[in-house]
Amino acid sequence: MTASDLRALLTRRREPALALLIVVLVVLIGIRAPFFVSIDSLSGVLTDTSILMMLACAEMLVILTRGIDLSLAANVAFTGMAVALLSMSYPELPVVAYIVSALLIGLVLGAFNGFFVAIIGIPPIVVTLGTLSMFRGLVFVISGGEWVNRHEMPDIYQMFPMETFLGLPHLLWVAVTVIPMFWLFMNHTKAGRSLYAIGGNPQAARYVGIPIEARLFMVYAIAGMIAGLCGYLWTARFAVAYTEIAIGFELVVIAACVIGGVSIAGGVGTIPGVVLGALFLGLIANALPVMGWSPFWKQAISGAVILIAVVLNSRSHKRQGKLIVRRDEATAS
């Protein structure tokens, strides 16, 4: 393989390159700390990364349409707090009731974004920056700034994510269910494919009859719903709900997308790529303590990787001018 083949591979097909990078990392870490490569430890990394993977998939939908959702983590915090308070007041409900409530609350918050972006037509960055503050503020309002602690939550609420089924925690099973649904949606439904069209060429998307406003609204609503689900999972898993939950996490989510090959300019990105991007960040986060490095390296490393990813993304789209001259004729002369 020549250098240019390698670059073509890295730029054209992000997923295999990223998968390879992850395997190499695991092996390297395994050499330093063999216990890291055990099934238990690796499934722990996956479980830890489940929420990030799901949020990154949700964010990808938004970015594909040339948008951005900065309010996802704030939605996680608000919905997490709301369902935690719900469980405190109504501890006898079945766990599915908490999950459905989380999905609905998240959906409403997402639809709120969708309304302003799709119907009113305000740029997504402005809308979601506003709702980011708003949701964070509302966490204070509904909780009065108080925490919901382990002993205040019903057992059934906090046990669900880490209880196991076939040896794996429910949290991982949720991700394993949600992510293929995303994949199916994005690759095999007309609505999913239309998001690529909207991001790739909005004008042309309108020409072929794609209802752009409806699709945008849907995208923000879906993203909100997934954030709501993650809000429940987050507070249940750590058995605590407090006002600063997931603060700044929207940037990690966007980072996972970019590393996974999603173009911020829209129209480019795949679910497997985004999942691998999230996994990469999760791996770094979990491996650093194992390697005995300071956790602050995590931020530095993910920052550097984002830059590399963006450079690769832009290289893959740089064109060598338009193809006008037919060189095959010219070579004869």
């Binding site: 690529y196 069209a197 790739g200 060429n201 004008q203 042309a204 998307a205 020409y207 129209g267 480019v268």
Partner: peptide, 11 residues
Amino acid sequence: IHQETSVFEEL
């Protein structure tokens, strides 16, 4: 067939 090139380059 529209005058403008209304294509989706990445698809």
